[in-house]
């Protein structure tokens, strides 16, 4: 992977990480967007779409309400696509999906933890500026806010960089050591977990009320279309 590609992935991962909570929440942070764009940067859209779909299913397990702590799947998907592309050779094979999922899930976990840390740093900065905030100093208010955004951008860049590094490390350690059957096992585990997480997450959201009937109707309809294709 060239340095230029790596920097582009880092920039994309940073934007995606910023979008999730800070600026501007237009949902480029959703894996279904982050993955294909990362794939396009790598010249391997197939892997981008596949990992985007997989992590979008994992995303259904997350409801970002209030101050809840949750994994961050945006930069994670970027790292996952990079790892899967490197492992699969970019030839459109599914060989790298399992490895990509492994790298992405670990990166997602790190992303969630890093958001918690940034919020604590923001609280500390706000605490330090309390007196001037209570005096109604608008410049301090804006400065604090910009510093928070800068902190989140730095966090997103670090998480993406760690994820990209983890992808290279995983590729070096795992790819040569696995047989084709081993790679398939990893792929099966990743895809199964994604489907299970998507289904369970949605059912939790839908609940036992009337929405359940709509959900069941959707599953039947989707299954019929899948069968007929």
């Amino acid at each position: 992977m060239s340095l230029e590609t790596l920097l582009l992935l880092l920039a994309w991962g940073t934007l995606v990480g910023l979008d999730l909570v800070s600026v501007p929440q237009v949902m480029i942070a959703r894996p279904i967007v982050a993955g294909p764009v990362a794939g396009a940067i790598l010249g391997d859209p197939w892997t981008g779409f596949a990992l985007g779909v997989l992590f979008e299913l994992f995303q259904y397990d997350v409801l970002p309400v209030g101050a809840a702590r949750y994994p961050e799947y945006g930069p994670a998907t970027v790292a996952a696509v990079s790892a899967a592309h490197a492992a699969g050779g970019g030839g459109g094979e599914a060989l790298g999906i399992g490895l990509g999922a492994l790298v992405g899930l670990v990166t997602g976990m790190m992303g969630g933890t890093s958001m918690h840390l940034v919020r604590r740093l923001n609280a500390r900065a706000t605490h330090a500026a309390n007196e001037r905030l209570e005096a109604g100093d608008a410049r301090v208010l804006v400065r604090l806010h910009l510093a928070g955004i800068l902190r989140d951008a730095t966090r997103a860049a670090l998480v993406t960089a760690l994820g990209l590094g983890l992808g290279q490390l995983a590729r070096a350690l795992v790819v040569g050591a696995l047989t084709v059957r081993g790679v398939t096992l990893l792929d099966v585990a990743a895809v199964s977990a994604g489907i299970a997480a998507g289904a369970a997450g949605t059912l939790r959201l839908v609940g036992r009320g009337p929405g359940l009937r709509w959900f069941a109707a959707g599953v039947v309809g989707g299954a019929a279309v899948a069968w007929l294709r």
Binding site: A50, V53, L54, E56, L57, Y60, E93, A94, I97, T184, D187, V188, V191, G194, I195, G198, A199, T202, L205, V206, P210, G211, L212, W214, F215, A216, A217, G218, V219, V220, G221, G222, A223, V225, A226, R229
Partner: peptide
């Protein structure tokens, strides 16, 4: 709520089919 339930319900089998398209046999 109902629209979401219907759409996600339909998306799950289609996404599963899309992702498992590369698998054959036992997998």
């Amino acid at each position: 709520g109902p629209a979401m339930a219907l759409a996600v319900g339909a998306a799950l089998p289609l996404a599963a089919q899309y992702l498992s398209g590369a698998f054959t046999g036992w997998s």
